[in-house]
């Protein structure tokens, strides 16, 4: 029995792939057999695209040591398959499916999820579809959705850029912003758009900027912006209050939701709090992966492993 994690690869510019990477490595750390199945964009029809199983292993993808299998190597009855929410249906035809909501279903691409037969886990409460209920933390509860936030954090990169002198007023992130804003304005010439830069350069440039403005309300880069010493501001989603944006107050640390919120921020205190939160990430990830294993054991009547 293995855990098969479906992933498009490891990409520092994609928060979703980082979470999938953390899940896989923490499961390995817990002593489980883990493998990746590669995902690639596929067309559902002329208008819709989704993520499906890649026809072959994509050699250029970074996978950080975990083996990649083909669909044919899968044991459909015993293996547990973890799909991100973007995968349409159950292309592996596995009998044991975990569905990880790394975004609101349908927000990124067309998708299909069997909420009855799959074990659905949300990365954050605001990704839970309307009308569905959130389970109590860590308590398996029928078809209610559990929330498990696993985070990837590279502290060394943050430390190396923190003391960068400010050379620019504003850097801007758009990323998935057009999914939340009807239009993105043309930015002034002296604003730097970070979107197309590699992750290391994004950190370096954010550290040189007084403000980092993000039109993507949920990018982890907004947290990194605060950590490298910038004032990180998310452009408010029209009609969406701060509470609707991120219901868990703890997740707002280090980010101002709009300029008004920026006025009340003590940035150095926010940065310290964020760093302190991230210092606990490993511990939290370990606890949460233990919860995942417990949920899988219960849901799939699986003897699993004894972590105790």
């Amino acid at each position: 029995m293995r855990i098969i994690v479906c992933t498009p690869g490891f990409d520092l510019n994609s928060g979703g792939t980082l979470v999938l990477d953390v899940i896989a490595h923490k499961l390995v750390e817990a002593g489980l057999q883990v493998a990746f199945l590669m995902l690639a964009p596929i067309k559902l029809d002329s208008a819709r695209w989704t993520l499906g199983l890649a026809n072959q292993h994509i050699g250029s993808k970074v996978l950080r040591g975990i083996p990649v299998i083909n669909k044919n190597d899968l044991d459909q009855s015993s293996d547990i398959v973890i799909y991100p929410e973007v995968v349409f249906g159950n292309p592996c035809r596995a009998s044991k499916v975990v569905r990880w909501l790394l975004n609101s279903p349908g927000k990124i691409c067309a998708t299909q999820i069997d909420f009855v037969n799959e074990l659905v886990i949300a990365h954050a409460t605001h990704f839970i579809p309307e009308g569905m209920e959130c389970a109590m933390p860590g308590a398996p509860d029928g078809n209610k959705i559990n929330v498990l936030s696993l985070a990837y954090f590279d502290n060394t990169a943050v430390e190396s850029y923190f003391d960068n002198a400010k050379e620019r007023n504003v850097s801007v992130l758009v990323r998935k912003g057009l999914r939340y804003h009807a239009t993105i304005p043309k930015f002034p010439d002296d604003w730097l758009n970070l979107d197309r830069l590699p992750f290391e350069d994004q950190l370096s440039e954010m550290a040189k900027s007084r403000y980092v403005v993000s039109y993507d309300p949920y990018t982890m880069l907004s947290n990194y912006a605060c950590l490298v010493g910038s004032k990180s501001i998310v452009v408010p989603i029209p009609g969406c209050s701060e509470d609707q944006w991120l219901p868990e107050i703890g997740r707002r640390t280090g980010i101002a939701y709009g300029i008004q919120a920026c006025k009340n921020m003590c940035w150095e205190a926010q940065r310290r709090e964020l760093l302190s939160n991230y210092s606990l990430i490993e511990e939290r990830n370990t606890k949460r992966i233990a919860t995942l294993i417990e949920l899988m054991r219960t849901r799939f009547s699986w003897a699993g492993i004894n972590l105790g």
Binding site: D189, D190, G258
Partner: peptide, 18 residues
Amino acid sequence: PDFDFIGLSESSRFSYGI
């Protein structure tokens, strides 16, 4: 004071601060 103000003019001689 608000991001709505950005884009009122796209002239290259204008810049915006926070």
